[in-house]
Design a protein around this nucleic acid. Sequence first.
DNA 1: TCCGGATATTAGACAAAGTCCAGATCCGTG
DNA 2: CACGGATCTGGACTTTGTCTAATATCCGGA
Lengths: 136, 136
Amino acid sequence: MDYTRDNMAGLLRSHDINPTHQRIEIAHALFSRQEHLSADQVMAIVNTRHSETSKATVYNTLKLFLEKGLVREVIVDPSKVFYDPNTSPHHHLYEVDSGKLSDIDAGHVQISGLPPLPEGMVTEGIDLIVRVRRNG
Amino acid sequence: MDYTRDNMAGLLRSHDINPTHQRIEIAHALFSRQEHLSADQVMAIVNTRHSETSKATVYNTLKLFLEKGLVREVIVDPSKVFYDPNTSPHHHLYEVDSGKLSDIDAGHVQISGLPPLPEGMVTEGIDLIVRVRRNG
DNA sequence: TCCGGATATTAGACAAAGTCCAGATCCGTG
DNA sequence: CACGGATCTGGACTTTGTCTAATATCCGGA
C-alpha cells in the first residue's frame, strides 16, 4: 500500500481519529517518509507548499496520534522528541554526532534476565537504544 | 567509603578534574544521594544552605563530569536530562506517571542478536529502559 | 437550507531547560 | 605583590513545548 492522502484518511479512521485536513497532512508527512521526525520537522514539511498549519495543531496532532497508537515516541536526543511511524516492535540505533536515528528490527534481538516488576506495575514498553559514534 | 567532601576532592582528582568548591558541592549532591538528579534538582540542593552556585556553573560542571566519565546521562523524560552517579553497567526502570527512575542491575540481563554496526562506528553505550505504569 | 453544538484550529503569550558571553574572581607561581 | 590561566557569574537569549481564548469548521436535525 502506498501513502496517498486518501489512504491516510482510512488509516486515521481505523485508529478512531477524525481525519481532518491538517491531520491528513501530518500523517502523510510521517508515513510517506517512514522516518523519525521531530515536531519541528513535521511543521516545516507540512508548511512548505502553502497550507499553513499552526504549531499548536502540530503538537496536538502528534500527541493525539501517540495516544491512539498511530506513532511511537522516541526519546534519545535530550533536546527534542522524535515521532516514529513504525509501531511494530523494534529498537533504535542513534548516531550521537549526527543525530541520525535508525531502526533495528526486533526480530532477532533477545532480552533476557530482567528482574520482576514492582508490585502493581505493568510494562508500557521496553526501549533499547544503541548509541554509536564515528570511529575517530 | 563514604561521600565526605574530602573524598569528593579525591574522586574529582582521580578523574582529572580540578576540585573546586562548586564542583565538590555538586559531586557531593550526586554521590551522597546515589540518585538520579536533574540539573534543576542539583542546583536546588547545592543552593539550599547558602553557597550560591550559578545555573551556568551547574550546567558546565555536569557536562564536565559527563565528559570525564564521572557520571552518566539518562534520557528518559522528554523534558529534562537526569545525571546518574552510578557508572557501572546497568539499565533503568522508569515509572511514567510519577517520573521515578531506578536502576536495574545489568548482572543478569542478556541482550543478544543485535545486528552488526554500520562500518566505522563504535558503540558508545547501550541504553535499556523499561517503561512501566501503575496498573489501573 | 439553516441552526446549534461539538470538534478542530489558530495566534500569540507563556514556561522551562539549556546555552552563551563578557566581565569578575580565584588561585598558584615567580 | 602582580600576572595569567582557569573558573564562576548574572543575565540575555534560544528552543521546545504548553496554554488559552477566540475563531472556524463540521455535521445532524428541524
